[in-house]
Simulated assay, not measured.
Amino acid sequence: MTATAARPAETFAAKQATTRHFLMCPPAYFTVEYVINPWMNPDEPVDAALAMAQWEELKNTYVRLGHTVNTIEPQPGLPDMVFAANSGTVIEGRVLGSKFRAPERAAEAEHFRRWFVTHGHRDLVMPTRINEAEGDFAWTGEVLLAGTGFRTDPAAHAEAQEALGVPVVSLNLIDERYYHLDTALFVLDKGPNAQIAYYPGAFSEGSRRVLARMFPDAVIADEADASCLGLNGVSDGHHVVLPFEATGLAAQLEERGYEVIGLDMSELRKSGGGPKCCTMELHS
């Protein structure tokens, strides 16, 4: 536990859950057959049935909490399509699609574009710059935190601001294990007093200063939390879904009044994914 958790829980405001709308993709074709991040090892066996069971538990958790979950049909030949967060950013009815850096994932973007069109999302822009969507974009309710360094092109940040009409703050990632923003930071509570959790070691010195200035009351995760992808979490403002191994982070969150739900995401982590990677939020 870090020093940021020193204050007693009663000094923090009561946590209020808000209903969320998620888009997910079943891991019907999930496997690890190529390497595009340090977590992936094609020589390590993947248990497809266990991956599906872990994904189902995540989906069922959202439904049990009262959230809406839509699903998109998985496609053969796209084993990482389960990581729906990488294929679109949706804010207040506007949609910015994705453009993947790795050719192995490129076809995913069109499948998600078609889903948006067939489900009534007309205000949709497909990017011209490399943009891995909610993998590198985190909406606080006021600003879009935007990661770069390994996947999303820095120029995609300006493109996102134009397409979505929200202010964007760029953050530079420096550790290849945390190749997407959503592996090192997530939003706990949206709004004017938004709260986040993050792992400082994933960010450049300047980006750490930006985060400390913007979010002085942030929850600071340590390397143990980060190394199990504990920052790849999903919060509804009260309930926080995390990999169960992130015990230090969970303790901090509980002290602040959040209810933590730890899940086993070990099979999907073999491709560098966790709860957030599997979950695109359609922000209203």
Rank of each mutant, 00 (worst) to 15 (best):
Met1Gly: 15
Thr4Met: 15
Thr4Trp: 14
Ala5Asp: 09
Ala5Arg: 05
Pro8Phe: 02
Glu10Tyr: 15
Ala13Gln: 13
Lys15Thr: 11
Lys15Ala: 11
Thr18Cys: 13
Arg20Gln: 15
Met24Ile: 12
Met24His: 02
Pro26Asn: 07
Ala28Leu: 14
Phe30Val: 09
Val32Gln: 11
Val32Trp: 02
Val35Thr: 15
Ile36Ala: 06
Asn37Tyr: 03
Met40Gln: 12
Glu44Trp: 11
Glu44Lys: 15
Val46Gly: 09
Val46Pro: 07
Val46Tyr: 06
Asp47Val: 03
Ala49Gly: 13
Leu58Pro: 00
Leu58Met: 12
Asn60Trp: 10
Asn60Ile: 05
Thr61Glu: 02
Arg64Lys: 15
Leu65Gly: 13
Gly66Thr: 07
Thr68Asn: 12
Thr71Gly: 00
Gly77Asp: 05
Leu78Gly: 00
Leu78Asn: 09
Gly88Ala: 09
Thr89Leu: 12
Gly93His: 03
Val95Tyr: 06
Leu96Gln: 14
Phe100Pro: 04
Phe100Ser: 15
Ala102Met: 10
Ala102Arg: 08
Pro103Ile: 08
Ala109Ile: 05
Arg113Pro: 00
Arg114Gln: 13
Phe116Glu: 06
Gly120Asp: 08
Arg122Gly: 13
Leu124Arg: 09
Val125Cys: 09
Val125Ser: 07
Met126Asp: 14
Ala133Leu: 00
Asp136Cys: 06
Phe137Arg: 07
Thr140Asp: 08
Leu145Tyr: 00
Ala146Asp: 03
Ala146Ser: 15
Thr148Met: 03
Arg151Ile: 00
Ala156His: 03
Ala156Asp: 07
His157Cys: 11
Ala158Glu: 07
Ala160His: 05
Ala160Thr: 02
Ala163Cys: 11
Ala163Lys: 05
Leu164Glu: 02
Leu164Arg: 01
Val169Asn: 03
Leu171Met: 03
Asn172Ser: 15
Tyr179Gln: 04
Leu181His: 08
Thr183His: 01
Leu185Glu: 00
Val187Cys: 10
Asp189Tyr: 05
Gly191Cys: 11
Ala194Trp: 12
Gln195Tyr: 07
Ala197Gly: 04
Tyr198Asn: 02
Pro200Gln: 11
Ala202His: 00
Ala202Arg: 04
Gly206Arg: 06
Ala212Pro: 03
Met214Ser: 03
Ala218Lys: 10
Ala218Cys: 09
Ala221Lys: 02
Asp222Arg: 05
Asp225Val: 03
Asp225Phe: 04
Ala226Val: 00
Leu231Ser: 05
Asn232Met: 02
Asn232Arg: 01
Asn232Glu: 05
Val234Ile: 10
Val234Met: 03
Asp236Thr: 09
Gly237Leu: 03
His238Asp: 12
His239Asp: 14
Val240Thr: 06
Phe244His: 15
Glu245Phe: 06
Ala246Glu: 05
Val260Ser: 02
Gly262His: 05
Leu263Gly: 07
Met265Phe: 12
Gly273Ala: 09
Pro275His: 01
Cys277Ala: 06
Leu282Trp: 02
